[in-house]
Nucleic acid binder design. Structure first.
Lengths: 193, 193
DNA sequence: ACTATATGAGACAATCATGTCTCGCTTTCA
DNA sequence: TGAAAGCGAGACATGATTGTCTCATATAGT
């Protein structure tokens, strides 16, 4: 059994139950528990490796995007297409103490968030997003919508090939320039009369 | 120590670390471990009670909204104002096996999702949301944005009083009628030239 | 003051996951 | 064919957590 296979199994099992035991992961991988420990001496090592591998996959996918030939909005579209399929890998361990305090993981994740912030700023600069919306909120919402998109696919509410496009459309419209009449409750009320 | 105080402490501790021990929860509540067990005979009982209490709080908050005097969009705005402050209580145990298989919890949560679906349909009917966007996706995204909003407040990225409004604006714009020029990557590219 | 009730502290057994180790078995490579 | 390496199964000790229980104390109501 390859290291990748073990990490995949760990991803599947842990995303459904973050507290799953090593035995459960080994079983999912079709491997003896001892073998799992041979590759990852401790549970913490396994989780660290899983998170780093996931972050690496995201880097790999996004670095293949020709950013110099696309608008910032198009870059975001490509990023979403790339990472929505990987969306499950992350949310489940945001609270893992082993992950939260790891400097290497924090550095890598922080860098990715920073890159996303820069992309959002670029989108504001090119006029595809509303400057009035806080960048931090846009980044947080993108994060959440990626997760929601993967989730919706997972329980069959949305087709796999549509998920990234739905998320992209939601982001672009949601943070584009406002049409006040359709977003303010007060005016919506008067419009109802 | 009141039952409510224990549930509050459990909410605080478990939302930060879903695997926290009973001793940690009791300590947070400033109470002996035995006392905690007197109120909740097993850990599972505690988690069940916490989830049900959280769902009940949402019901309570939303039922005070005068739905007959507001547009569907306004109702959504009020709902967001009510539940964004409670947002942390839920995501953390969506994977808890004790919760996932509990019929009472599933019924209550499913009903709330159904009500949200109905509200989304009503918003489509009144023209404040785009009929072309799948309701399931809208519901999933609202769910995710509520969580994102609470999260952004929690780490200081967004002011508490702005969170619900940001989420509302994002939803209303994000699922309103599209302005094709601002959402399609293809056209964005030609616009860049 | 008196009694009933709830509490905090802590001992305790049972359970469970972790991490180590050994022992055959199989595969691979020479 | 033979040696080496990796594997599955499982025994084992360890530590942490759960859930039960006791007992002394505090508090509230009468």
């Amino acid at each position: 059994m390859t290291r990748q296979g073990l990490l995949n199994a760990a991803g599947v099992v842990l995303s459904r139950n973050p507290g799953a035991a090593m035995a459960e992961i080994a079983e999912k991988a079709g491997v003896g528990r001892a073998t799992l420990y041979r590759h990852f001496p401790t549970r913490e090592d396994l989780i660290r490796a899983l998170v780093l591998e996931s972050l690496r996959q995201i880097d790999e996918a996004t670095q293949q995007i020709p950013i110099d030939r696309l608008s910032a909005a198009q870059v975001l579209a490509e990023i979403l297409e790339s990472i929505v399929p990987l969306g499950d890998r992350f949310r489940f361990l945001s609270n893992e103490p082993a992950v939260l305090n790891d400097p290497e993981i924090n550095a890598a994740y922080g860098r990715q968030l920073d890159e996303l912030s820069e992309l959002v700023e670029a989108m504001k600069a090119e006029g595809s997003l509303d400057r009035a919306v806080p960048t931090a909120w846009v980044v947080a919402a993108i994060d959440a919508l990626v997760y929601a998109a993967w989730n919706a696919v997972d329980d069959g509410a949305v087709a796999r090939r549509d998920a990234a496009k739905l998320a992209f459309r939601t982001i672009m419209q949601g943070f584009g320039l406002a049409d006040p009449a359709s977003t303010s409750p007060r005016t919506a009320r008067s419009a109802k009369k």
